[in-house]
Design a protein around this nucleic acid. Structure first.
Length: 182
DNA sequence: GCCAACGTTGGC
DNA sequence: GCCAACGTTGGC
């Protein structure tokens, strides 16, 4: 099987690239979305490349690189009643949720911001650049991985605020009326 | 099986 | 903190 590439999201508040670098390796538990579960369980292979993406961060974006060090295995945190990730639906005989392990590879000199990803040629199809994309484990094409890797290693900084303001304006223009809610 | 309500994600 | 987008739940 050819090497594949993934993007994994995490909020620095729960796990930062610096913590990851110090630890060297970490388990990746707590994914509670079926689509992401399927990917972890069925598609992750040892040696696959991972873009470590910091969400709700400053700046939000790809902070570095990891590699898969253990393929999908049952998320045992789902069976721990006292744990936040506890889920009574998951049966040890037939686990609902899966996790993987990843190993730290490198931290970029500067985060490749979401804004940069959106404005870089060749990354137009990356899922993470799509509005409203919440999937926490996403496939990445090898070409895309390469582009992000080059950007990250170059240490190029994010574009000026003007670009952000422009993007924001375009977004609100596209916004539809809110759904009615009680 | 529909769909409104709800809870969560996540950019800003 | 705001709020749009999304996934899940549950009444029918």
């Amino acid at each position: 099987m050819a090497k594949r590439y993934w993007l994994m999201k995490v909020e620095p508040e729960s796990y930062s690239i610096d913590e990851f670098q110090r630890a060297g390796e970490t388990s990746w538990e707590g994914v509670r979305n079926y689509q992401a579960r399927n990917t972890l369980r069925d598609d992750f292979q040892v040696g696959d490349g991972v873009l470590f993406y910091a969400s709700n961060a400053d700046p939000t974006g790809v902070a570095g690189i990891a590699e898969v060090s253990r393929a999908g295995y049952p998320d045992h945190f789902a069976w721990d009643k006292k744990h936040d990730y506890y889920d009574p639906k998951s049966d040890p005989e037939n686990p609902t949720w899966y996790m993987v392990d990843i190993r730290f590879v490198e931290k970029f000199p500067a985060v490749v911001s979401l804004q940069q990803l959106k404005s870089t040629k060749g990354l137009e199809d990356m899922m993470v650049t799509k509005r409203g994309m919440r999937l926490s484990v996403q496939p990445v094409k090898s070409d895309e991985f390469k582009i992000v890797l080059d950007l990250g290693r170059s240490g190029q900084v994010a574009p000026p605020k003007a670009a952000k303001a422009k993007a924001k304006k375009a977004r609100s223009a596209a916004r539809k009326p809110a759904r009615k809610r009680k």
